[in-house]
Design a protein around this nucleic acid. Structure first.
Lengths: 207, 207
DNA sequence: GCAATACTTGAACGGTAATTCAAGTATTGC
DNA sequence: GCAATACTTGAATTACCGTTCAAGTATTGC
């Protein structure tokens, strides 16, 4: 009897994610979402309730993807530190290439909205905690593998890592000099106690 | 002959700064500025041209104040590292008290506007460079005073410091646990090579 | 094919924002 | 005091945005 919906919810969310990520919440109009997803306003509102509803789902999808990646890293039997360095390296590379400068969707949302939208604030706080726990698991694995000082609390190291990455996610908006970015990454590795430099950042061609 | 203007430009800018800092650019309406400054729309537009004009001047004032503070620190004959730790400590304390969670006006502006406003982007890039140079001067002083490893490039350490502080300016939006924040600060100090912990963070009462 | 179902469509609505401008008003030098 | 000056005022203007809804349309089971 009923007609079946003509769109795939997850596809729509990923398309909307691109727009929100590039332009932020406030600068994204419903018209932009309509253009990006192909859904007309009525369908969008039937499916998600509001522009804000779309955004909340986009945020959840974003967090889920990143936490999933970290959990996979923590489960591996070796290379946890290499995995962390890989993530750092990727963020540095993203900043140095500097094509879009979109930064991190969650950081952008936190700064744009947490002040005046309690639901988004608490949602992002939950996301933040999940990310930090996931990082802590990876750090714990790296400690078990003898690559990170086992004396220090993994949660503390994870908090420092998240802080540093968030810094890079801001930095990428105005800095694309690879030498500078590598120096920052080196400082971060020193901060997690990797004094011996067992792991080095991949040195990419000069910027 | 002419009537003299009835307001003090700097006072108006500082009042506007409070509003932009608390609410961000997009969420601040001209009515908010009218309410905060006491100037009516017509006077505001006569004096600053546009809402954006007010914001640019606010941004300049903000940068000028912070850079001035750093330069004063660099000129002192001793205590450069203590000064840096003091700034860190202040930011941590601000985050832990978490009364307003306004973070850093420049970071907020960078994330909100740099993508779609080239003039603001380049202005903030200049500000960023000035801040980093000023930090580098303080680091140089700390090196001369024997408190920071003199082998490392002050500019690199400064970049790492700015990155870490920007991270904290994001972190304060969703984290106010003092233990966690102190752990982050400890990581930052480890990152600038303060292994011996000559300087400790002031330990404030539990959160 | 047909009726039932519910998805799709896009024009219209109400609200709000930034900006302008013509009228009002306070201050100045003489 | 007076005329000249230019600052102040706030209602009006223009534009856009999120949201709704009534009409249209495609799909399904029979």
């Amino acid at each position: 009897m009923p007609r079946t919906p003509e769109f795939d919810r997850q596809t729509v969310i990923l398309e909307a994610q691109q727009v929100f990520w590039s332009r932020g919440y406030g600068q994204t109009s419903v018209s932009d979402l309509v253009a990006a997803t192909g859904l007309k306003p009525g369908s969008l509102y039937a499916a998600f309730g509001s522009k804000r509803g779309v955004f909340l789902e986009v945020l959840d999808a974003y967090n889920h993807a990143f936490v999933g990646r970290l959990r996979a890293l923590a489960k591996q039997e070796s290379g946890a530190l290499e995995g962390l360095v890989g993530i750092l390296d990727e963020i540095v590379d993203d900043a140095a290439t500097g094509r879009d400068r979109r930064g991190c969707l969650a950081v952008n949302a936190l700064l744009e909205m947490s002040q005046h939208d309690e639901e988004i604030e608490s949602r992002l706080r939950q996301h933040n905690e999940r990310v930090r726990r996931a990082f802590a698991e990876v750090v714990k694995a790296a400690q078990a593998q003898g690559d990170v000082d086992a004396q220090r609390d993994p949660a503390d190291i994870a908090a420092f890592l998240v802080n540093s990455i968030w810094g890079l996610r801001v930095m990428c908006k105005s800095e694309s000099d690879r030498r500078t970015l590598n120096a920052i990454a080196a400082g971060i590795l020193a901060g997690i106690g990797n004094r011996q430099r067992k792991i080095r950042l991949r040195v990419s061609p000069a910027n």
